[in-house]
Simulated assay, not measured.
Amino acid sequence: MNSTGNTILVTGGTSGIGLGLALKFHEAGNNVIIAGRRKALLDKIVAEHPGIDSVLLDVRDPQSILGASEALAISHPNLNVLINSAGIMHWEDLTDPDDLITAENIVTTNLLGTIRLAYTFIPQLTKQPSATIVNVSSALAFVPLPSTPTYSATKAAVHSFTQSLRVQLEASSVEVIELAPPGVRTTLLGQENDENAMPLDEFLEEIFELLEINPTPKELVVERAKPLRFAEANGSHDEILKMLAGYKPPQE
């Protein structure tokens, strides 16, 4: 993937890793469109960062995805990069029936959203001479955090889906990349002040160093994420799972 000269759509581009990637790619000389479902927030970010565009898009709504793709095909016909960054993460108690709604919302956003966006935008991306899909999974795709079971499961599914997507698009102009972050200091799950999470600036810096590698790695995995990513291969999976099982949601 070229680090500059692209037209990039970033879902979940109003906060956290999505916004961080959007700003970093914008600074690198790309035309960036941030997508989100809160117009006031989109307008605020666009006003604060001249040159960035925005589009209303709710990844939970198939019609919203279709409408955004049709609008962008007209306004940004050279769109050649899709970054699927939108996602939610919540604590769950699997013994509490009320948490089923939470689990279903996570699946709709994290997994169905990613799948629907891929299906919807692939026709436009394959028309470009060079294009990229970046699916954001998580280090928890490889060893789950038991207190966030559905989040971890959706990210494992995103990993699997991304592998299949890469194979199916192998003969096309579209490369497929997976970005698997560790815990990063963002508002996702209230980690912005978590000393155990990786500072966002450090994470972005390491990701962009990986993007400079030619050819671009199929998986963008920073050093902090590697213990989980390779846990199964090096035999440490059960040990890490036991450690993560001891991590409990904060008491309210």
Rank of each mutant, 00 (worst) to 15 (best):
M1V: 12
M1I: 12
N2H: 05
I8N: 09
V10Y: 00
T14N: 01
S15V: 01
L21K: 05
A28Q: 11
G29D: 03
G29T: 02
G29M: 02
N30K: 14
N31E: 13
G36I: 02
R37W: 01
L41V: 13
L42M: 13
L42E: 10
V59R: 00
V59I: 01
R60D: 11
P62Y: 10
S64M: 00
L72Q: 01
H76K: 14
H76M: 04
L79G: 00
V81P: 05
V81A: 08
V81N: 04
A86I: 03
G87N: 04
E92G: 09
D93H: 11
D93T: 07
L94Y: 06
D96E: 09
P97E: 09
L111A: 11
I115W: 13
L117G: 03
A118H: 02
Y119V: 10
P123W: 01
L125H: 04
T126G: 03
A139V: 11
V143E: 11
L145S: 12
S147E: 05
T150Q: 08
A153N: 08
T154D: 14
A156C: 08
V158T: 06
S164I: 07
S164F: 11
R166K: 14
E178W: 09
P181G: 09
G183S: 15
R185H: 02
N193Y: 06
N193M: 08
D194V: 04
N196V: 07
A197P: 10
M198L: 15
L200M: 05
L204H: 07
L204Q: 04
E205H: 14
E205W: 06
I207S: 06
E209Q: 13
L211Y: 11
I213Y: 05
I213K: 11
E219N: 12
L220A: 04
E223K: 10
P227V: 07
A231P: 03
G235I: 00
G235V: 01
I240M: 03
A245K: 11
G246P: 03
Y247V: 13
Y247C: 05
